[in-house]
Simulated assay, not measured.
Amino acid sequence: MYERKIPELLDCGLAVSIKVIGGKWKAWIIDCIRRGVRRPSAIHKEMHEVAPRIINMHLKELEEYGLIYKKVYAEIPARVEYCFTEVGYSVLPVVDILEKWGNEHKEYIYQHKEGYQADSCPFERKTA
């Protein structure tokens, strides 16, 4: 079993926020669920650039933190969907602010960070 060498400092609001919604893919998963992409297979299809194992790991973490819950339907074959908890809904404005900031500053970041491409955003919302 893995034992942390440095204890997590979760008495700081910023540390808690980053722990819960930080990382490369969690905000995208949250956005998928918000847009109605709730089944694991649909999330995998939407986020095809990301390994399903990674998506599943993040879904499990979001569930452990209490932002989402797994709704299992009594059907054969079983059908599973992820839905927001009340706390999960409360994080949506934070994700919106992060997206707004990113859209307002992406050109600046592209100019200052080698390897970024301004024309390829995997998070771009798909319109129906």
Rank of each mutant, 00 (worst) to 15 (best):
Y89G: 06
V94Y: 04
E99Y: 14
G66Q: 03
C12N: 15
V72M: 13
C12P: 00
E81G: 02
K60A: 10
V80N: 08
H58Q: 12
Y69F: 15
H105G: 01
K106T: 02
E81N: 14
S17F: 07
C83E: 14
I29A: 06
C12K: 10
K106R: 15
Y69D: 01
Y69T: 06
V72T: 15
H58T: 00
V20P: 00
E63S: 12
D11Y: 10
E61Q: 13
I55G: 04
S120R: 10
V37R: 03
K24S: 10
L10F: 06
K60T: 12
E104G: 03
H48S: 11
V95P: 04
R39P: 01
P93N: 05
E3Y: 08
I97F: 09
I21D: 05
V72Y: 09
R79T: 13
R35F: 09
I76S: 11
K24E: 12
G88F: 05
I33T: 08
K60V: 04
I29Q: 03
Y2P: 07
D11K: 04
G66C: 06
A51T: 01
A74G: 07
Y65I: 00
K26W: 11
V94Q: 05
V94G: 03
L10D: 11
I21P: 07
I54Y: 08
V20F: 04
G115M: 11
A42P: 00
H44T: 07
L14K: 13
Y108P: 01
G23Y: 09
G36K: 05
K24T: 14
Y69M: 01
K60W: 08
S120T: 08
I29E: 00
S17M: 14
L67Q: 04
I18Q: 13
L62H: 02
Y2F: 06
M47W: 03
R4V: 00
I68M: 03
S90V: 02
E63Y: 03
V50T: 12
I43T: 04
P122I: 05
A128N: 10
I55F: 02
D31E: 14
Y116T: 08
V94E: 04
I6L: 14
L62D: 00
V80M: 06
H58C: 05
P77C: 07
G88V: 05
A128W: 11
I30Q: 02
I29F: 08
Y110S: 05
V37S: 03
V50W: 03
W25N: 14
G23N: 11
L67N: 04
I68V: 15
P52V: 02
L10K: 11
M57N: 12
A42D: 15
Y108K: 13
R79S: 12
M57G: 11
C83V: 09
L92R: 11
P7Y: 09
V91A: 01
I30F: 00
E3L: 08
K126R: 15
G102I: 07
V37W: 00
E61P: 03
L9Q: 10
V16I: 15
W101P: 00
E64P: 00
P93R: 06
K26R: 15
C121L: 01
G13K: 13
K100D: 15
R79A: 13
I29V: 13
V50Q: 06
V95R: 05
S120D: 09
D31L: 03
